[in-house]
Amino acid sequence: MVNELTYVYCISDSPLPVHSISDQKDLECLKFGTFYGYVKKVSPDEFSEENLNKNFNNLPWIERHARNHIRIIGEIMKSSIVIPFKFGTVFNSEESLGNFIQKYTSSLNENLKNIKGKEEWSVKIYCNYTVLNEEIMELSEDVRNLEQEISKSKPGKSFLLKRKKVELIEKEVAKVVQLSGQICYEEVKRFSELTQVNSLLSAEHSDRKDSMILNISCFVNQVSVTEFIDAIGELQKKYKKIGFDISTAGPWPPFSFTSIKEK
């Protein structure tokens, strides 16, 4: 096809038989010096800069192609160390990709060295505020003391104290959320080479009714992955009763811990 563009999934330091990647007949592995680029040819009708910007407003198109992008990189990761490229990274030709690789050779080598033997895992913590509010009496001495004072007060004072109790519960819940999030963060850091705190996802984007309070990417040494996962499991057991849900997923392509920069 005339004027095809070169779409890039990732760069690695080792080749992989592309026929081993399921449902991806158009995937190619191209050699550029000591690097291997995993690419496919795409049409400008979809992936030119102008048309790609239009397609970014097409949610079904984005979901289909972005999921496939992550899936392909994930399969390559099973056998190779990879530097993942963001979804929608397109070069005008194989030659322009080769020029890019030549220009950033030093940075690519540094990235490959840094990610060798490590995996990116996500940790997300959610809070069910309804459950936490129900448990706050047991968790907060101040709330318990105020409740006792209310029970001993006359109606007029009791009414005012109940209003104060609502404000106190809100304050104490926020305190528990902040403290619990910090404790969990410090725990996962113990098993991580690096961490990155990410933006919180809204309920609309997380498809959950509870609220996300912490969203972390963790760079974990492969020898520590089992301990890391076990630690998440222990945190889940500890905090589930009071309304927290702590989960981890991975390994993911190391988007959070790779950065190609000119020296």
Rank of each mutant, 00 (worst) to 15 (best):
V2G: 05
L5K: 05
Y7W: 08
Y9S: 04
C10A: 15
C10W: 02
Q24W: 09
K25Q: 13
L27V: 05
K31M: 08
T34I: 09
F35H: 06
S43D: 14
E50P: 00
E50C: 01
L52P: 00
K54G: 03
F56H: 13
R67I: 12
G74P: 05
G74N: 11
G74R: 06
K78R: 15
S79V: 00
I83N: 04
F87E: 07
E94Y: 03
N99R: 13
Y104W: 02
S107T: 06
L112N: 01
I115P: 00
K118Q: 07
E119K: 07
E120N: 04
Y126H: 10
Y129Q: 14
Y129G: 01
E135C: 12
E141Y: 09
L146R: 06
Q148F: 04
E149D: 09
I150R: 07
S153I: 06
P155F: 08
F159K: 13
L168I: 08
I169W: 06
K171I: 00
A174I: 02
I183F: 10
E187V: 13
K189C: 15
L194K: 15
S199D: 15
L200C: 11
L201D: 12
H205L: 15
H205C: 11
S211W: 03
E227M: 10
D230Y: 10
Q236G: 03
K237Q: 12
K238Q: 15
K241N: 14
K241Y: 12
F244H: 07
I246R: 09
T248Y: 07
A249T: 15
A249H: 09
W252S: 11
P253Q: 07
E262A: 03
K263I: 13
